[in-house]
Design a binder for these strands. Structure first.
Lengths: 202, 202
DNA sequence: CCCACAACTTGCGTGCCGCGCACCTAGTGC
DNA sequence: GCACTAGGTGCGCGGCACGCAAGTTGTGGG
């Protein structure tokens, strides 16, 4: 986050990681969904200005490198929920936190479309979305109080699933709605109390 | 399913596939969560009485072979829901279908524990669970009628997530409840209407 | 200011794996 | 029985993950 809160070493490391990640995603987009096999480790490393050996000090597969930005984002969902006001009802807080996290900035449509239309990458993206569940469940637990672990975990999984489904619908060719709109609609299926019998949930 | 509904070729193919899958899972369990790297393709193929080349006519990674039984199971969730009586409310039908599918027979605890405690396999299991979403969403759609695609997809994702979370809790060391019990509890978080304000949802 | 130490990068070597290709074997339908 | 087809197998190639042992660069104490 705060680059100047780290020493030079940490900043360089972060820079290298992002360089590799960006290069990997860019090359993947260039080759398209059916050309993933053509994106060689050597190409990614070269494009990132780094040796292949260094590439795999950071990532142990191309899929991981390409999708790492999603994984990083997922890790932040816990703090996003925690930063909501304490008195806010659970459903509103979760919706607000998720929308804040996933639409600021608006996601890269080309990158996401590439990932979601490539089976190997889809699996990695799935892992990335699922990584959000742990932190999210913990953050939910601080709002519901202790002794409801199963409820928290299931709710977190449902929310993560809703975000994933919303992403898929957002990417559909005919769609014109903003991601925030679809996210809200998807989450209203998880928290029906927030929008009882919403006729717009299509 | 019905072995005699297929010709010899198809039956042999199915047999080979299961032999490889079983051999892979057995070897993985033998080596334990930290010894996955020691399970070589050659070992799996030999244990299944097949050449390495044939092994990867069926599977393109060890993880895929080890977790294939989960993927196969997930593919059946659609028909499980469709086989419920037409008049049954959605929530009851889903709960009944899921419990029927995932507790008949009771899952192999050793195998599942092995998979869920090995990161590489966990990713594959995640894919397997997620495979259930498509068929499940379609089956749900036949009950809700058309024009609610998002609702169906989100609900399916939530149910799949609940099953996954339930599995994790069932495997926890201190747990004594049956899988069916935990499944029911987890699903009641997804369909609160079925068990309003259930104090047992812990 | 300099030096010893720690962290990061890199080149090299090794073993394993995915998969295309061509050939062989066994099941199928006429 | 016989041609045909689907599946099994051996071989070989290109690529990848990763351990190891330098080389390079940032850091903190004297």
């Amino acid at each position: 986050m705060n680059d100047d809160a780290m020493d030079l070493r940490a900043r360089n490391k972060q820079t290298t990681r992002e360089a590799i990640s960006h290069a990997a995603l860019r090359l993947a987009i260039e080759q398209g969904p059916h050309g993933l096999a053509l994106v060689r480790v050597h190409d990614i490393a070269t494009a990132a200005g780094v040796s292949p050996r260094t590439y795999n000090n950071y990532f142990s597969s191309r899929e991981e490198a390409i999708c790492s930005f999603q994984a990083d984002q997922s890790k932040r969902v816990g703090e996003a929920l925690r930063s909501r006001p304490a008195g806010e009802p659970l459903d509103e807080a979760v919706v607000a936190a998720v929308i804040e996290l996933y639409t600021n900035p608006e996601p890269d449509k080309a990158g996401l479309r590439m990932i979601m239309s490539t089976p190997e990458l889809e699996g990695e993206a799935l892992k990335a979305f699922t990584m959000a569940e742990g932190p999210l469940a913990e953050a939910i637990a601080t709002r519901t109080g202790p002794g409801r672990d199963l409820f928290c975990a299931v709710t977190a999984a449902a929310v993560a699933g809703a975000v994933r489904v919303a992403g898929r619908h957002w990417l559909e060719p005919g769609n014109t709605d903003s991601f925030a709109t679809i996210l809200r609609r998807a989450l209203s299926c998880v928290f029906p109390a927030a929008r009882p019998a919403d006729p717009q949930d299509q």
